[in-house]
Design a binder for these strands. Sequence first.
DNA 1: ATGTCC
Length: 466
Amino acid sequence: MIKAITNRDLVDAGIPGGSYLPSLTARGNRLLEDHSREDVIQRLKAIYKAEYTVPIVPLLEEGPELKVNLEAGNEAEQANLEACVTTMREAARTPTVRAAAILPDACPSGPAGTITVGGVIATENAIHPGMHSADICCSMMATNLGQVDPRAAMDAAFRHVRFGPLARNTPDRLTLDPQLLKEFEQNPFMREQKILHNAEVQLGTQGDGNHFYFIGISEQTGDTYIVSHHGSRGVGGHLYKLGMKEATKYTGSCSPETLPQNVWIEAESQTGQDYWEALQLARAWTKYNHSSVHDLIARDLGVTGQDRFWNEHNFVFKRNGLYYHAKGATPAWEGFADDNDSAGRTIIPLNMSQPVLIVKGRDNPDALGFSPHGAGRNMSRKAHKRTLEGRTMDEVFTEETAHIDARFQSGKIDTSELPSAYKNAESVIDQIDRMALATVVDRILPHGSIMAGECDAPWKQRRAAR
DNA sequence: ATGTCC
């Protein structure tokens, strides 16, 4: 008579303890009728692995080849290029990744192995919150005001925009589309209280950092344009956090080697579908945010402002069965969204003293179908500040904004957003052309720019006091 | 970028 197999035998054989042990043991004892004890234990180990564990996927030995659409013109740009390649190659080892590219405005962001700004990563059945970034649906919108005095447009814009982290909407100014709110409430992510709250109180606000309103003149027609740049504010900020939490949980069980910033949500799972829908709702809110403020400005000026187009540059796009994560990259193919411009126009800003480019994307496969989203930075904000040492802020401001009406809504100059903080505009334009990323169809020549400026947010003061 | 760890 062969000795029966016990739970203890399985644990001794290396199977971790758990509530499944009795059923495994019972199956083993039935197998004992035809197989040796040794053989049965081996079989049970195999059954355990196949039925009771999620397969662990290793990092790719070497990810797909990085498509480099970036040329370095000097030593600083060379250092930037090398840093971008290193971090993107590491990110591309994440098991879900099928393709990766950098664009002429690429610069690193976050810890090693993080997708760069000016970067695109395509994945299979995976949405990576860390790859579309926290500023979900950061985007550009342009409205043609017609033959309006740009000085009047600047003043009207300044009256209606609300920059800065503390900016709030008031219900007498703008109200949220009730249908959109209803859709938020039906989504497991968007019905989060903080998201619903921010959707109301941050409506028509622009935030800070590199976000802006720009007034300029079309080179082609002489018409005055509003161009705005911002994302989904706290709405997307919170959605990003919820997404990262889900992704961290999921990836921990199947790919513990994946870097914390590269975790993902299985796109085809229920959670993945809910998150995808939540991204679309954050996008809809962002569009409403841009367009409702454009409407306020147009109405103030007594025009309709109906010729309008927009594009996101921090988002996830589904194409040919893959999920394209753009972190500061402009989609350059026809039909990237169901509401993209019928004439195929997208918007690439450079810096406040340079024209905003209106382009038609060239869907270049070497750039995975994307074009840049701006000029990009060659150095960190801190490093840029160091280059200005010894000069007063007013001096630098006056020199760099001599030909435009540059306004900071907080009243304090933010030098990290002045033109010298950004890469050389001509070089970026040249690369867009030579690398066949997009065709410039118009340029909105700069008249004026509104940004947040340095802000004294309470949490910043607390940090400074320590 | 985000009231930047509820």
